[in-house]
Design a protein around this nucleic acid. Structure first.
Length: 431
RNA sequence: GCGGCAUUAGCUCAGUCGGUAGAGCACUGGAUUGUGAUUCCAGGUGUCACCGGUUCGAUCCCGGUAUGUCGCCCCA
């Protein structure tokens, strides 16, 4: 076992049985995005390393210790497996000047890579659906994207996903709050635990998240960002909330809701569940008005969010959601030389008529072939022996009688099988 | 990256107070001539994750490694 090559830690195969859940999820998601007018965009999985350093922030955990970065040995170029999708999407937007004429609503789905310690709901190759809008400055698009989430959970048959909302204000407002916050923590340095000490100058907002009881009182009294927000920021936040209230979407304002990526401003939101243990965030996003310009484009307001596919699929499976059983309509059983020459033609003829056919390969007795026909989930077996072959006929047998009795069977001319089967399948759908 | 727990047949698991192992499901074949899902019969050497140590002897004790899992950190 140890001699065999295994998949890289934290990078998983999705096998039949689970992959159907992925396909169901993807179909649902595509229909949902289409209903909001978002259009697909596909970016490379590998991007120049500086893109992520500039977009995400040099001192974030992602950039400092989680990126799969390497130098292309063939030309010396520093490259990185994308740890998130927004940076690449913005890069593409700028490169192709997509927002020059019209605002854009875009989405993508695919693998992302972060070198973290794997856990349930956290993998080194994980998958996200990313949704981004460019060119809309008002709170309406923020609210639209939040409403989208609510609808998707419903489409997926999920409940118990709660919305948390916050505003980060504008960079200047945040900076003044941050300065005051650091000063506050420094005044109470004697209370700070080791974790907080470490984060004091890297990510002081995270200290507000500390669960250390000894620090709670001091944290509660710490300076509030809300007190640093100007009228415009407050109005934007209120605008988002107004639409949510009108839509009847419950939410909780969480002043400690912060982003791990530096590019966010104003609205931030997170959809969370408590059914996934430590990895409870299933979808998160917000506004990032400064990023396009920061990456060299024209100033362009932007707002987006990303969903964790593995986490959502785990929830779907836990909720008992089942994809449609992937079965074929017909299993073709055949034995004998003449029959085995006729059988492929019959199978192709059926497929010409839109019928899904599993063709038996590998020979074996009729008995063993019938077992496989049954296990395939097919509604019918088309049985071809040399008797049928010489008569230009096949035996059509029902497999799903539902009452444990052997299915009816009859001989049908080769030209009539497709018609017979289509009629029966239609009858079943009506019933 | 840190700490706890786990790792036995394809799957879900039992077991050996240290003497190299079992069940259910699944799978394959059979119960007379060309037919499934029920029933009956038959079929498993699986380096008991890997490497090393202690021991006459280790799957079972000890150490390390790998992988998973829970929590922390972080985040989708």
């Amino acid at each position: 076992m140890s001699k065999n090559i295994q998949s890289v830690r934290g990078m998983n195969d999705v096998l039949p049985g689970e992959s159907e859940f992925w396909e169901l999820f993807e179909e649902t998601v595509r229909g949902w995005l289409k209903s909001y007018g978002y259009r697909p965009i596909r970016m490379p999985i590998v991007e120049p390393t500086p893109l992520f350093k500039r977009a995400i922030g040099e001192v974030t955990d992602i950039v400092e210790k989680e990126m799969y970065s390497f130098v292309d040995g063939l030309n010396g170029e520093p490259l990185t497996l994308r740890p998130e999708g927004t940076a690449g999407c913005v890069r593409a937007l700028i490169q192709h000047n997509l927002a020059a004429q019209q605002p854009q609503r875009l989405y993508y789905m695919g693998p992302m890579f972060r070198h973290e310690r794997p856990q349930k709901g956290r993998y080194r190759q994980f998958h996200q659906v990313g949704v981004e809008s460019f060119g809309f400055a008002g709170p309406d698009v923020d609210a639209e994207q939040i409403l989208m989430g609510a609808r998707l959970w419903d489409d997926l048959g999920l409940d118990g996903i709660r919305l948390q909302l916050n505003t980060l204000g504008q960079p200047a407002e945040r900076a003044s709050h941050r300065a005051e916050l650091i000063a506050w923590f420094e005044r109470h340095a004697d209370l700070l635990d080791e974790d907080a000490q470490r984060r004091l100058h890297t990510n002081p907002l995270r200290i507000l998240d500390s669960k250390n009881p000894a620090m709670q009182e001091m944290i509660m009294a710490a300076p509030k960002l809300l007190d640093h927000l100007g009228d415009a920021s407050l109005a934007h936040f209120e605008g988002v909330q107004q639409i949510l209230r009108d839509a009847g979407i419950p939410y909780e304002i969480n002043p400690r809701l912060v982003r791990g990526l530096d590019y966010y401003n104003l609205t931030v939101f997170e959809w969370v569940t408590d059914r996934l243990g430590a990895q409870g965030t299933v979808c998160a996003g917000g506004r990032y008005d400064g990023l396009v310009e920061q990456l060299g484009g024209k100033p362009t307001p932007a707002c987006g969010f990303a969903m964790g596919v593995e986490r959502l699929i785990a929830l779907i499976r836990e909720a008992g959601g089942e994809p449609a059983v992937p079965g074929v309509d017909v299993y073709v059983v055949h034995q004998g030389e003449a029959a085995s020459r006729l059988a492929p033609r019959v199978a192709e003829r059926l497929r010409d008529n839109g019928i899904d056919v599993l063709f038996h390969c590998g020979g074996g007795s009729f008995k063993s072939q019938m077992k496989k026909a049954d296990a395939s989930g097919a509604a019918f077996a088309v049985i071809i022996g040399d008797d049928e072959a010489t008569a230009g006929e096949v035996t059509l047998k029902e497999l799903r009688t539902g009452d444990g009795q052997p299915g009816q069977q009859k001989r049908v001319g080769v030209d009539d099988v497709a018609g017979e089967i289509m009629n029966s399948l239609m009858d079943w759908e009506e019933a």
